[in-house]
Design a protein around this nucleic acid. Structure first.
Lengths: 245, 245
DNA sequence: CAGTGGTCTAGACCACTTC
DNA sequence: AAGTGGTCTAGACCACTGC
């Protein structure tokens, strides 16, 4: 019997390796959100490649919104604290062209144990400690969004209802500032559902109304899932906006 | 009183101009969907620039899914006829991981006049001739999608219910093959709605069930809107999948 | 083997920001 | 003026495809 030789390591261009090294530095918090990373010339010297090769690596990371290039200033680690990037993942818009402004109200923050579904999505074990948060968001006094959020307790030690209410800003900026956790991407599954007794109360809508149900899993560096959200949107005067390319 | 001088024409790099020229060729149907465009070297000679500059132009067009690069073979005009690109804009998935397969049934195809709303979205005048199509799509015998489609008559001359039913494949491949119209991108606005009498009939659901309403405007080259779709999805066993970056 | 796109380099120069 | 990213070039060589 003969051993089948392992497949030859597939060709990996230099700039991919450099992307990986930059990613590793990001993941290791060597450069923090908002920081400038070293200049292209510096990185070229550090990795002993040409500037053009570093450039291609950075280009691709910038295309994935991990880095932000600013001519004349430098290349920066993307952050949700930036003006205009606070609501990067929010696709809800008003039907009129008016700008949406949502006011936050946190209702609950409890420490519980992961059930099978939550554990699977967050890549935890059933029974692992997690945090569950409820909130309602309103526009002009009318509740529009009811949201349940699940977080792994390990990464968000000490989070309380008070600390949430003390924060006036987007949640992902909160995670970044308080828990050194930067969200890189998210996946959403969208359905239409009916208002039940509980939702009727939170959203001040009659039972039997239609709602948009949006289940999100958000990931930090290294494809690590660190947040689940189940939102219900009242889409009477709003809609979820999506661009397809 | 002094005149404020006009702002200087903003800087436009060479590769942007080349992108524009390639785009013009695509828009003029000089190269058709599925065709190979000239090689990088040829284009570099034609436009009298270096290969690297052509390369950057093509890279960006490929990133927008207008072109497809194939190492060793050439660069091709993107097409909805391609295996794996047929349902490029379809975000509906089964809740189980099973592959979704939808069967088409066209119900109506009528020649009407544009109302204010349709005219605005398609950039036509009120009263301009348009075509309206109804269809139902089913999975395993169960209707999942009811869709109304509006097309400008000018671009889709001679379209009939029979020609639609004769076609077994995605609509965007049909538009490409029969009407030389390639869809480049689309925008969708999503809401949750309730089943009314009409929808109940088409989707075999009780009045009062929740449905996903998806209003799409699709664009061809040059940001020209050429199709409106209003779909209703039964999301009992399916969901709309979206990735956020 | 010829032709295509893909990678990498080295160097010149431009545009933008800051001091 | 110095430092950053952005553009453009020319040339060498690699990887993949198809004849």
């Amino acid at each position: 019997m003969t051993l089948i030789s392992e497949p030859v390591a597939s060709f990996s261009p230099l700039y991919e390796q450099i992307k990986a090294m930059i990613l590793a530095s990001l993941q290791a918090s060597e450069w923090l959100p908002g920081d400038a990373i070293p200049s292209e010339m510096d990185l070229a010297a550090r990795y002993a490649v040409s500037q053009g090769t570093v450039r291609k690596a950075i280009d691709e990371l910038a295309a994935q919104n991990l880095l932000v290039r600013r001519q004349g200033k430098g290349t920066f680690v993307a952050t949700h604290q930036e003006e205009g990037w606070q609501y990067r993942f929010l696709r809800l818009e008003t039907d009129s062209a008016e700008k949406l402004h949502l006011k936050n109200r946190f209702l609950a923050c409890e420490y519980i144990k992961a059930d099978a579904h939550t554990a699977q999505l967050l890549k935890l074990k059933v029974g692992d400690p997690i945090i569950r948060i409820d909130r309602v968001q309103s526009s002009m006094g009318k509740p529009i969004v009811f949201e349940e959020i699940w977080l792994p307790e390990g990464r968000f030690k000490g989070l309380t209802l008070d600390s949430l209410n003390a924060w006036a800003g987007p949640m992902y900026a909160f995670y970044e500032g308080e828990y050194a956790t930067h969200m890189v991407r998210a996946e959403e599954k969208i359905k239409a559902v009916l208002v039940n007794q509980t939702l009727a109360q939170y959203l001040q809508l009659p039972v039997g109304s239609a709602l948009l149900s949006v289940e999100r899993v958000a990931f930090t560096y290294g494809n690590k899932p660190v947040e689940i959200r189940h939102a219900r949107y009242d889409t009477s005067d709003h809609h979820y906006d999506n661009k397809l390319n």
